[in-house]
Computed example of a mutant assay.
Amino acid sequence: MPWFALDDGFDTHPKVRKAGNAAVGLFVRLGVHATRHLTEGHLDGDIVRDYGTAATIRKLVTVGMLHDAEHGCRRCPQPANDGYYIHDYLDYNKSRAQIEASREAARKRQNRGRETARRNRNERDSDANLSSNSRQNDASFAPNCGQNDPQFEGSTAGQDDMSRRDTHEGVTVVPSPPLPSQNYDGVDAGGGATGSRAADLAAFATTPIEVDGFQLTDAMRRWAHATYPAIDVDHATAQFVSHYRSTGARRRSWPDAWQKWVRDDAQRASQRRQPSNVIQLASGQTLTGTDARVAGWLALPSEETP
Results as ranks from 00 to 15, higher is better:
A106C: 04
A105S: 12
N148V: 10
R112L: 10
R58W: 04
I47K: 04
P177L: 09
P229E: 13
G195Y: 07
G248M: 05
Q215D: 09
Q239R: 12
S134L: 05
V28N: 05
A269T: 07
A117C: 02
R273I: 01
D149Q: 06
A5W: 14
A105K: 15
T290P: 02
F204K: 13
V233M: 04
Y51Q: 06
L130T: 09
S302E: 12
L216I: 06
F141L: 00
F4E: 02
D46L: 03
N277M: 01
G284P: 05
V63W: 02
R17Q: 15
G20Y: 01
P301L: 07
D88E: 15
L30P: 00
T288K: 11
S131E: 11
A142P: 00
A106W: 04
A257C: 07
R273Y: 00
R251F: 09
Q271T: 05
T35C: 06
Y85I: 05
L287Q: 08
T286C: 06
R96A: 14
I86P: 01
D212S: 15
A55V: 11
D160P: 07
R252M: 06
F141E: 00
M162V: 10
E304N: 14
H71W: 08
S102Q: 15
L26S: 04
F214S: 01
R197S: 14
P77A: 10
T237S: 08
A55T: 14
